[in-house]
Design a protein around this nucleic acid. Structure first.
Lengths: 104, 104
DNA sequence: TTGACAAATCAAGAAAAGTTGATATATTGG
DNA sequence: CCAATATATCAACTTTTCTTGATTTGTCAA
């Protein structure tokens, strides 16, 4: 755990922003090119680029260039790891609860 | 989803810090009083208080006063919701993949 | 090759979050 | 009630992150 803390924190930080969550949600429908994501933000293109970079560097998105366009998609492995991590945080606690329940 | 985005972002933000993850990890062993958590941080007590507050306000921790001491514990429901949320982000994508696989 | 479009990068400023030390509040034991 | 201990809050400061507009890079089509 201790070594992966930094990594985990980076994951959560990447998800800790409404706009980025909106992007991830959009991409959960499947791969999309940047140009199709522009409407997610009311504002400038550079900001979208910034958020995409943040998510990509955290390992949550992958990108792929195809001619003029760049396509982004979710990295499902990362999301799975995050899901497991969250699960593991409550896991031990749950076990303790269960253990206590049996001894009431 | 759209209405809960802000809430979700607050959850992830609360978890987007190594120290707070360390606290959560500690608490996954069960409820602990603040005084037992002081060693999680190398530094001052007010900082610990700040991080606990951040986690509590995000709904991830509960607190309970018992005499002079305040005990913090995980809010398992919140962690479960977070886990489900992360799962749902990859879910549709997974379904699409599965759907495609069957038609190869 | 040039012009047009997609996307990334950069620099500068604004906003938010983290950190620190000092002080306040609450509770209990003496 | 007073002194001691646990925890929270506050104000000031530092650091990080977000946002914007301008510039750059890459790719294609004419």
């Amino acid at each position: 755990m201790s070594k992966s803390l930094e990594h985990a924190a980076r994951w959560f930080h990447a998800l800790a922003d409404e706009t980025r969550l909106r992007i991830v949600h959009r991409l959960s429908e499947g791969e999309q090119c940047v140009c199709d994501l522009t409407d997610v933000l009311g504002t400038g293109q550079s900001l979208l680029s910034f958020h995409l970079k943040t998510l990509k560097e955290a390992g949550i998105l992958r990108d792929r260039r195809e001619g003029r366009w760049v396509y982004y998609s979710l990295n499902l492995e990362a999301l799975e790891e995050i899901e497991k991590l969250v699960g593991s945080l409550k896991a031990m606690n749950g076990r303790l609860q269960a253990a206590l329940k049996c001894c009431e």
